[in-house]
């Protein structure tokens, strides 16, 4: 494998990681502040993608579609938080897992009922089409570069929000001591609804961004959801910094694993078998990584006990 290809694959891994981060950020934020495991996060991702596809189909404007994805996911987030989720904060994780699992069933089939059984069309905007030549002669998709930039911007924005603003201060206070912040007169239920809506909007945005280069279909949220869980567990649940580190680690491991392992195996096995075995191992690699991290750091890389 040439150096150029290797660098390109590292870039791909980085880009995959950033895509995962967009999804994982909301998940880890919601867990950090409210202590809630939200399996339905993948459904909000799907809602974002469907809203974007519907609006893009109607208006032809990608920016409008992105805004629609943010708004739609946030609105659904608020509705779900106020009707269901807020009853779960005091429950144990088991109840949260089951209730949000039930939400997945409802959201998926309701989406299919509304939009039909066939995948929807969502394309990247004309201005972001095509490739650019990076230093070193690497030809890289402009849209993927944009995703990397948006992801990093979101990471920076979240960092500023949490460390520099008043809302952020309350969020941090809520993470540390839920009882105390209520006692200080902060309307905790409004804060929780806001945080949940923010997490939902992030999921919706990433659904729309990713939907433009993937398939907008029912059930698109669940595979990403599991990956996002792997990411936040590796990073330490509740830590935005951890989510970013975990996402990039997972993105790199997965991308490099699936390109390098078959090559590695073909050095001592015959062609077809090496590809099969190498790919089989590669598909398990991130779970092995996660198990490995947890065995040595049971609360993830940046998690606190």
């Amino acid at each position: 494998m040439s150096t150029i290809l290797l660098i390109e694959q590292i870039l791909n891994g980085l880009q995959f990681g950033v895509m995962l981060f967009l999804m994982a950020a909301g998940l880890t934020l919601i867990f950090g502040v409210m202590g809630l495991i939200n399996l339905a996060h993948g459904s909000l991702y799907m809602i974002g993608a469907f809203a974007a596809a519907a609006v893009a189909g109607w208006s032809g404007n990608f920016l409008l579609a992105l805004i629609a994805s943010l708004i739609a996911a946030a609105i659904f987030g608020v509705i779900v938080e106020m009707t269901v989720i807020r009853r779960l904060y005091k429950r144990d994780h088991l109840d949260q897992v089951l209730a949000t699992f039930a939400l997945i069933l409802i959201f998926s089939e309701a989406t299919r009922w509304t939009f039909g059984s066939f995948p929807l069309f969502l394309d990247i905007p004309a201005v972001l089409k095509g490739t650019v030549i990076l230093p070193g002669g690497i030809e890289y998709s402009l849209y993927r570069l944009t995703i990397i930039l948006i992801g990093l911007a979101v990471a920076l924005g979240l960092y500023l929000l949490i460390s520099k603003t008043r809302v952020g201060m309350r969020i941090r206070a809520g993470e540390n001591d839920r009882e105390m912040i209520g006692a200080l007169g902060v309307d905790i239920s409004v804060l929780y609804t806001m945080v949940f809506a923010l997490g939902a909007a992030l999921a919706g945005l990433s659904g729309a961004l990713v939907g433009a280069i993937q398939s907008v279909e029912v059930g698109m949220g669940e595979p990403v959801l599991i990956l996002a869980f792997v990411v936040i567990v590796i990073g330490g649940i509740g830590s935005i910094r951890g989510a970013l580190a975990g996402a990039i680690l997972v993105g790199l491991t997965d991308t490099l694993g699936r390109t390098l392992l078959p090559v590695l195996f073909s050095s001592f096995m015959d062609g077809s078998a090496a590809t099969t075995v190498g790919s089989a191992l590669a598909s398990m690699l991130i779970y092995i990584l996660m198990a490995g991290v947890l065995i040595f750091k049971p609360t993830g890389l940046f998690g606190s006990a």
């Binding site: 694959q9 791909n12 998709s141 993937q214 698109m220 991308t255 390109t259």
Partner: peptide, 11 residues
């Protein structure tokens, strides 16, 4: 060979 259900094919 890619992973079944894989959605990103950049690599």
């Amino acid at each position: 060979f890619t992973k079944l259900g894989q959605t990103d094919y950049a690599a």
